[in-house]
């Protein structure tokens, strides 16, 4: 029992999977065992978008207290709008569209870091202010046009293999890449080091600025990827397509067991938490809860999960 507790305390992400499994069990118990597989498949499909941006948000939050990227929703929108407009429904322009959307996201990431580093604006306010500018750019560039994605992109975003969404597999690869990046590369180690103690990391010879720069750019790029795939999935870009990801991206990071105080990332937790969040909504839907009740219960359950999972242990 003690060993089990010790093993669990080292793996904070376990809880998000436990919560997801409980919610799933409650749902299929209610339906009498029907549709369990379909629900999981749908959850995988919808959760992938949250996972993509959650990974970026996780990196940012891991670089230390106060670091958070509030420009993710605006970047998703900008990327989606740019991708759809550049592609202009033509399959032949698919690649240019992807490159253009990622380039736009890259610029957002650089801008964010510029505000934080050069102007010394706290990241919360810096990314918030830049998100206003980014959103305005998206609005004025997109001009409310709803352009359909090129067929291959739409297919990629909605295709399933043996009931598993292809996008989920793609995001799984992305997740593994980020996990390796975090645990096996100099960049990954410096993210944790900077997050634990920026000054100590600097004294130890880590390049703090380069680490933070790469992190904000990575977060923006991941938001860009999410924007492209999401527009393919939902048949075009919309100006409010990023909205729900502001809260979701932060929630999955924290529920997934990443330390809010920085320095400790939890990659698998993002998956557990994103799937949990989707299954939660599904469960409340199956129980016949109205949209309002769902809202209240979602909030309460997020709080309950974080209370049970416990906060930061006192460090030092």
């Amino acid at each position: 029992m003690k060993n089990l507790a010790a093993a669990l305390s080292g793996k904070p992400w376990i809880w998000s999977f436990v919560a997801a499994a409980l919610v799933w069990l409650a749902t299929i118990t209610y339906t009498g065992g029907q549709g369990g597989g379909a629900i999981l498949s749908a959850a995988l499909s919808f959760a992938t978008f949250t996972i993509i941006v959650g990974l970026g948000q996780m990196l940012v939050i891991t670089t230390g207290p106060g670091n958070v990227d509030l420009s993710i929703p605006a970047t998703i929108t900008l990327s989606g709008v740019v991708a759809m407009k550049v592609m202009d429904t033509e399959t032949s322009r698919l690649l240019i569209g992807v490159v253009a959307a990622l380039a736009a996201s890259f610029v957002v990431g650089c801008f964010n870091f510029g505000l934080i580093r050069l102007l010394r604006i706290p990241p919360i306010i810096a990314t918030l202010s830049s998100s206003f500018l980014v959103l305005s750019t998206a609005i004025s560039y997109g001009r409310g046009l709803r352009i359909k994605p090129p067929p291959p992109l739409a297919e990629f975003a909605t295709m399933r293999m043996l009931g598993i969404p292809v996008v989920a597999l793609f995001v799984l690869l992305l997740t593994i890449a980020i996990a390796v990046l975090l645990s096996r590369t100099l960049y990954g180690r410096s993210v944790s080091a900077v997050g634990q103690n920026m000054r100590a990391a600097w004294l130890a010879g880590f390049n703090v600025d380069r680490t933070r720069f790469s992190t904000y750019v990575l977060s923006a790029l991941l938001a860009g990827v999410c924007g492209i795939v999401l527009s393919g999935f939902s048949g075009g870009a919309a100006l409010n397509m990023g909205e729900e990801f502001l809260l979701a991206s932060i929630a999955v990071v924290v529920i997934g067991g990443t330390s809010v105080a920085g320095g400790r990332a939890s990659v698998p937790g993002i998956w557990g938490a994103a799937i949990f969040m989707y299954l939660l909504v599904t469960m409340l839907n199956t129980f016949g809860a109205s949209a309002v009740i769902r809202l209240v219960l979602t909030g309460l359950i997020i709080i309950v999960v974080i209370v049970i999972a416990g906060g930061e242990k006192e460090q030092r």
Binding site: V68, V254, V260, I293, L295, V296, T298, I306, G311
Partner: peptide, 25 residues
């Protein structure tokens, strides 16, 4: 419980909004 206030208040924001809509749809 030494909780991150951002997450707790994030959850609360859903609760407040939900109750408000319940009272005044």
């Amino acid at each position: 419980r030494n909780l991150p206030s951002i997450v707790v208040t994030l959850g609360l924001s859903f609760v407040w909004l939900g109750i408000a809509v319940l009272i005044l749809p």
